[in-house]
Structures are given as C-alpha cells and as structure tokens.
C-alpha cells in the first residue's frame, strides 16, 4: 500500500516536472515562432487571399473573385511571354554561371600566392549594387557611346545594339546576370574543392587516373556533386528573380522581349495597381521557387551526399 502510494507520488511529481519542461520548451520557441508567423507565413497568406480578390491598391471596395485571377493569368499573353522570357534567361544564366564559376574556382584553387587576389577580383561583382552596375553596363553596351561598341566596330565586327535588338536583349541581360553570379559560385565551388581529400588524388594517381581530365572526371566532379547541386539550386532561384537589370536598362523592351516574371508582376501591381492579378503571379512565382527547393531536398540530395 505504501509502495503503491509512493509510486503514485513519484509519477505525479514526474508528470509535474515533464509539464514544466514542456512549458519551458514552448516558452523558448514562441519568440521564433511568432517571428516566422509574422514575417514569413502571414505575408504569404495575405498574398494568397489577395490573389482571390479584385483589390486595387488604394481602393476602398473589393470583392472575392475566386480563381478568376488565376484563369486570367493563364490566358494572359504578357504573363506567358514574361514566363517564357524568364525561363530563357534562367536557361542561359544557370549553365553559364555554374560552369564559369567552377572553371574559375579550379583555376584559382591552383594558384598559391595570388589566390587571394583572384578570389577578391572575381568576388567583387557580387558585392556591387546591381542597379548601379546596370547603369554602367547600359553605358558599356550603348550602341553609339559605349566602349564595347567602339571595340567591335574597330575589330570590323560591326555595331551591336544589344538592348535594342529583340534577339539579343535576353542574352545581354543574361551576360550581366552571369557576370554577377560567377564570383559567388566560385566561392561555393572553392569551398567544395577544399573539402576533397588530397588522398583521393593520390589514389587516383597510383590507379592510373593522372591526367588533368581524368582527375577532374573521376574525382573532382563526382566529389563536387553536393556543392554543384547547391550551386545550381541557388543560382536557379537567383536567376528566376531577375528584376534590377530589366527595370533599369530595358523596362521590358524591345517589343516585350525582355519582359520577365518579376518585372511584369511589378508593372501589374505597382503601375496598374491591380493587386489581385499581381498576387496571383506572386503565388505562381512562389510555386516555381518551392518546386526547385523541393527538388533539391527530396530528389537529388540523397544521391549526391556520400
């Protein structure tokens, strides 16, 4: 009887202790949870709700329109065009900046004394403000005043109005995108390269894979798998968000050939004040980013981590 009482008392005090611990735990998470709710979840929910309305910025009245914004969006020529342009832009920037970033990282990695200098030089574009740099690029590629035009003219290649030519405008913007991303990707690849054990190259030497290409294909590239995946995902998301250069240099011209998703979204939302359709586009944008992130998390991640 006393024994049973004692056990009862012990488990009662144990329960009290567990409750206290749980309460302390919740108390510790609450601030972070509130911040996440207020700063991340709430805005998305608001955008989601807005996308179901015909709300106009500054308007006093609005009404639910259901999925009308979405169906309009899917039938909207401008939206589809900007989506297509964005994909083309991403398709140029991602391979370009990943391959160049890797190439530069490998070349810089093999320097000993000048490594820090090269790293700094290639990283500089990352630290600049893209808006300001867009002005510089605009001048550099200006068909009448730009030094690059003078150069191509002097070389007998003729003149290029990169930002005025419907076929060249996305390529021009992509070049700026690549220019800005290479340094960042280089740093990530350098970190990945440093993490490859030297022993593996020694083993490859002895096994007979001692040429530069063999070493790269058999050791470096497979070992860089996780880094490459990470670089591709972050680059894709960054490229998907292209906005600054378009807003400063081309404003979607010529003939809408440089309309990209975020710029169109900006125009619809903040020039035409149509918050409903703009919110629907935002949701579409979020879905694309989410898909890319999920692809990393679930599909490829497991296969590339050793």
């Amino acid at each position: 009887m006393t024994v049973a009482l004692k056990i009862g008392r012990v488990s009662a005090s144990r329960n009290a202790q567990l409750r206290a611990e749980a309460a302390a735990g919740y108390a510790f998470v609450t601030p972070a949870l509130i911040l996440i709710m207020v700063l991340l979840i709430a805005p998305i929910v608001v955008v989601l709700l807005l996308s179901l309305t015909d709300y106009q910025l500054g308007a006093l009245e609005w009404s639910w329109v259901g999925l009308a914004n979405y169906s309009d969006m899917l039938g909207d020529r401008i939206f589809l065009r900007s989506l297509g342009n964005t994909f083309i832009y991403v398709a140029i920037v991602v391979p370009g900046s990943v391959v160049l970033g890797l190439l530069v990282a490998i070349l810089v990695q093999e320097r000993t004394k000048s490594k820090a200098i090269y790293q700094t030089i290639f990283f500089l574009p990352v630290t600049t403000t893209l808006i300001a740099m867009s002005v510089v690029w605009h001048f550099l590629l200006n068909p009448s005043l730009g030094p690059i035009t003078s150069l191509t003219r002097a070389l007998g290649l003729g003149e290029f109005d990169v930002f005025g030519d419907p076929d060249l405008v996305l390529v021009g913007l992509a070049v700026i995108g690549i220019w800005q991303l290479v340094g960042f990707n280089m740093i990530l690849f350098l970190a990945g390269l440093t993490a490859i054990p030297r022993d593996l190259y020694d083993a490859a030497d002895i096994d007979g894979a001692d040429g530069a290409w063999d070493r790269f294909a058999r050791v470096t590239w497979p070992m860089l798998g996780p880094t490459t995946l990470f670089v591709v995902v972050t680059t894709t998301i960054t490229a998907f968000r292209v906005f600054d250069t378009v807003a400063v240099i081309t404003r979607g011209n010529p003939q809408g050939r440089s309309d990209v998703l975020l710029y169109t979204l900006y125009k619809v939302g903040f020039q035409d004040f149509n918050m409903g359709p703009a919110s629907a586009m935002t949701i579409a944008f979020l879905v694309f980013v989410l898909v890319i992130a999920l692809a990393q998390a679930f599909l490829i991640d497991r296969r590339t981590h050793y």
């Binding site: 054990p197 022993d199 593996l200 020694d202 083993a203 030497d205 002895i206 007979g208 894979a209």
Partner: peptide, 15 residues
C-alpha cells in the same frame, strides 16, 4: 609517373 611504377598503396585514410 606513379601509374607506371606498378606499385599499389593503402592509405591511412584508405582513400
């Protein structure tokens, strides 16, 4: 070069 010496090696880290 290492590959032509016909030697095999076990590394500390196994590599």
């Amino acid at each position: 070069p290492a590959r032509d010496r016909n030697l095999a090696m076990v590394f500390q880290s196994y590599a």
